[in-house]
Nucleic acid binder design. Structure first.
Lengths: 160, 160
DNA sequence: TATTGTTATACTCTATAACTATA
DNA sequence: TATAGTTATAGAGTATAACAATA
């Protein structure tokens, strides 16, 4: 390998690393802001907000198993979050019509109202935090991220 | 406000939210991969790796206070991570030359060797994970993120 | 036997606050 | 008094594994 090619490879490597560190810094900053605001303004957390978002999309509720898959956390965690939300009257557990092992979790009317209100505010936070980009730039980055996402979904996790 | 403007605003809001969710998905995926690989291939964690990266850059070591600022975590956490790395012989605590309250933390020669090896592998992971973008695209996103970062640094945290 | 959900437990990462030694 | 560092504690957030009920 010639020195030229090698140096180009090295330059490209550092480019990727610098890009990653900047990407991580921006995302972490936004996520921390959202966590902090959810806690202070609504007394909730991101996992709880995410579970309510999943339930809001589904009219008939979701089983613990479905929630576990969609939130990408293990079953024990779903039980814990559901317990908290149920204690506050935001969700309820119902018997599953056809499988007595399963449990259907649904938003209560109060839970749906509370979520809709939080979601609107949350969306305004995101608009504000991403206001460093105009509409055209947002579209560009959105499409560039689509490419990256495709690549990442095809990138196997390293086996142990 | 006319219906047109309002609908444009709404469209833009959803654009920001969709962009944020995609940005978060990509970043989380990469970060999880890196955490997982650090754990499996080097038996270490991201905070430990980050501390060693800071120490590798500084020839004369850093005080606990400096580490706390650079890693953006509180002092108690720095003590804990330092304890772990010291127990494995990767860093050492030394008396500060001019302030007896302070402690200087330095990489040991073994720690520096271990870090350099990990860092090279880590950089290859990042190159691989970001391979969904070519060099030109990486440069574009890098510069777009610079803009966002500037905006985020000027965005005050919400007061309580 | 396999699956659903719960419980118990543990580990990482973080913060706050009380404490000591020193400035 | 103020600062550097340590210790103790707590709370998210996550995982694994043993378990009971049901399929």
């Amino acid at each position: 390998m010639s020195a030229d090619i090698e140096s180009r490879v090295t330059a490209d490597d550092h480019q990727a690393l610098k890009l990653w560190l900047r990407l991580l810094a921006c995302t972490t900053r936004i996520e921390d802001q959202i966590r902090d605001r959810l806690r202070r303004e609504f007394g909730t957390t991101l996992p709880r907000f995410d579970m309510m978002a999943q339930l809001d999309r589904s009219q008939d509720g979701l089983t613990m198993r479905e929630l576990s898959e969609r939130l990408m956390v293990t079953g024990g965690n779903v039980t814990g979050i559901t317990d908290q939300l149920e204690a506050e009257g935001l969700v309820e557990r119902q018997a599953h019509p056809s499988d007595r092992r399963s449990i259907n979790v649904l938003l209560t009317p109060a839970g749906r109202r509370a979520f809709r209100k939080m979601a609107a505010t949350h969306e305004q936070w995101v608009v504000e935090l991403l206001a460093g980009w105009n509409a055209k730039e947002k579209t560009q980055v959105y499409e560039q991220l689509a490419q990256l996402k495709t690549h990442l979904m095809n990138t196997k996790s390293k086996e142990s």
